[in-house]
């Protein structure tokens, strides 16, 4: 087991290095001169040359890559060409909002998935129609769900706010829900929750349906397994049969799917944040792209890619915990 964890961690590290190399290459082959972008369009050739030297662009590329990797390892992802602040500082400012949205949305997705799985496993008239509606909702893109949600719940019903994170976004940790809870500030908490609900749902529906379908298939398969019959023959209660014997054995594919979907959610958040002007990484990225702010774009890519890799490594380990046969 320990060896499996070490092996999986090593594999994740290798993937991260590969990812950083890809990001670096993308940066190199992109058109436009970062030095010129850094000093501005009207700068003198001498100033551009100085910026060239300052940004290390006059050195050969292998050296630049090693430098880039070395700095990245020390938390230095370069200076944003747009904000003229270290990219790490920018990311630190925008990340908590994104993390809060994605985590909230992921928990929502898991709950919805469980609901879909259990309701889908039941047999009642109209199950087919219900599944069809779910499938349709699952294929709708997140921005469409987001816009539809805004039109309905803000435009017509006035139940939920349209955009943003709420009044007070300057909380110490950057996590509005967490801070307001810690300070016992129910007003800020409700406000934060109201702001989270629409973007969270828009982001959660598609993953919830994917995860729910896999979970339902897993549960149905496991319910017919011989060892479930063995468990029943022992005379233990049905709840114990369900929890000890059915659920754990239904998790393998569901865990993979949940991990994949969590990764996708970090990618999908870019669009949802822009629909809801959510001050997170995706919003930051969307502002950096038109300005060719390569260090910022690379930083965001590296961060999201890194999260994706780590999440999948964790899922693999969780699967091994759930099913001991995998590490053999």
């Amino acid at each position: 087991m320990i060896r499996f964890v070490l092996w999986r961690t090593g594999a994740a590290a290798v993937l991260l290095v590969v990812l950083s190399a890809l990001v670096f290459v993308l940066q190199q082959i992109s058109p436009g001169d970062p030095a010129r972008a850094y000093v501005g369009g009207n700068a003198s050739p001498a100033a551009v040359a100085a910026a060239h030297h300052r940004l290390g662009l006059d050195r050969p590329w292998p050296q630049r890559y090693v430098r880039y990797l070395w700095h990245a390892l020390h938390g230095d992802l370069g200076i944003s060409l747009r904000t003229h602040r270290p990219v790490t500082t920018d990311l630190g400012q925008f990340l908590p909002a994104t993390a809060e949205l994605v985590l909230f949305s992921f928990v929502l997705a898991l709950l919805l998935a469980l609901l879909f799985a259990l309701s889908g496993a039941l047999r009642w008239p109209g199950t087919g129609l219900y599944r069809g509606v779910l499938l349709l909702a699952g294929t709708a893109p997140a921005f469409l769900l987001g816009l539809g949600g805004i039109v309905l719940f803000y435009g017509h019903l006035h139940w939920l706010p349209e955009a943003g994170r709420g009044v007070d976004t300057s909380s110490p940790t950057g996590f509005v829900l967490l801070d307001s809870l810690l300070h016992g500030d129910t007003g800020a908490f409700t406000d934060g929750l109201r702001h989270l609900l629409l973007p969270g749902l828009a982001l959660a529906v598609a993953p919830a349906i994917s995860i729910g379908r896999i979970l339902r298939a897993g549960l149905e398969r496991t319910f017919g397994a011989d060892y479930v019959r063995t468990a029943r023959s022992k005379g233990i209660r049905e709840v114990q049969v369900l929890w000890r014997h059915v659920v754990r054995n239904s998790l393998d594919a569901t865990l993979s799917m949940a991990g994949l979907q969590l990764g996708f959610m970090f990618a999908g958040v870019v669009i949802v944040e822009n629909v809801f002007t959510w001050p997170g990484i995706g919003y930051y990225l969307a502002q950096s792209i038109p300005q060719s702010d390569f260090p910022a774009i690379a930083g965001v890519t590296l961060l999201l890619g890194g999260v994706y890799i780590v999440v999948n490594a964790v899922v693999d380990v969780l699967q091994a915990v759930a099913d001991p046969r995998l590490t053999v």
Partner: peptide, 25 residues
Amino acid sequence: QLRAVRRSRLGVIFQDPMTSLNPTM
């Protein structure tokens, strides 16, 4: 009642030992 009697008075051996034991326990 059925669970109680299965628990303490009855035992079962099923046909296929490959599939009748919980693989994750």
